[in-house]
Design a protein around this nucleic acid. Structure first.
Lengths: 154, 154
DNA sequence: ATCAATAGTTGACAGTATCAACTAAAATCC
DNA sequence: GGATTTTAGTTGATACTGTCAACTATTGAT
């Protein structure tokens, strides 16, 4: 109901909304994988979504984006590799770097859950026009660029 | 770089942005508490931010918003109560309900970290005008309303 | 060539999430 | 009005996650 004294902290109003939406999408996607007998934890579903978006991402970058320790990423990827949705490919130019790629099976499974994702997308964006959503995306991108300088370069 | 085949899943583009921003804010706030010698884990910092926004929230609602089990909330609140930032107050009308309130100490500590929150807010919203941000807030609120019907009533 | 920095892995340990079983209070139904 | 069901919260057991420190391997710098 009542903010205490934080009316000027606008970003504070945004946080509960983002939290709510993120956990909803996370639950829906991990459930969609579960229905195909893939035992994907919510955390792994987050990582999978990032890797689908940025295929071939180095583990370090993944750690930056998810805000987790390198060690957490190692174990997260272990479980995704074990169920054959993701593979590790060493970078040939800098052999310290290991990139996370979606496997063919991963792509196929993603195709299978696409209908669910589309339904989720349509539900979420009911009564929202393209212009407003594009504005939202662009403004969010600016905010992230403003805040992500110290932790993540590209 | 390259989306696979998910150009139509617009909400998918939003997720990495939200993840990035949320973890940044979470880290900054839990660090701000740490500098005042409060040992607040990132998860507890999330909960605290929600409680600051909705003072007196029933634990069940908190569980819905954070997407966690009731049992997790019990333990999260235990740690916040232990460091005296939050207190549990039983609802007199429905005595099953226990509401999480910020204590006086919690309010005082929040005042102390306000400068950091303002700085964070200013950094995040650099080059973003009020009109765009208000649009963002309103659109996000609509998305949350569209998706939160099944899990959370008010 | 040496030394420092970076990417990733592993082991140990603490913290967290989750399930099921439980208590207590309120709502429903006959 | 009393029995049943539903809801809010707690607790114990167990598995999972996150993090720290120590380690290897590779690259970059002096």
């Amino acid at each position: 109901m009542d903010d205490l004294q934080c009316e000027n902290i606008k970003i504070g109003e945004l946080m509960p909304l983002m939290g709510h939406l993120m956990c909803y999408v996370r639950q829906q996607t991990s459930q969609a994988y579960a229905e195909l007998d893939y035992d994907i934890t919510p955390e792994a579903a987050d990582a999978l979504m990032i890797i689908q978006h940025f295929d071939g991402l180095p583990q370090k970058k993944l750690a930056d984006i998810l805000g987790k320790d390198k060690a957490s990423i190692t174990r997260l990827l272990n479980s995704l590799v074990k169920c054959q949705l993701v593979e590790r490919i060493q970078d040939l130019e800098d052999r310290r770097i290991i990139r996370a790629h979606i496997t063919e099976e991963g792509k196929a499974v993603f195709q299978k859950i696409l209908p669910k994702l589309h339904a989720l997308n349509d539900l979420a964006l009911t009564d929202i026009n393209d212009h407003d959503f594009n504005n939202l995306l662009q403004t969010m991108a600016t905010i992230v660029a403003n805040t992500s300088a110290p932790c993540c370069d590209s």
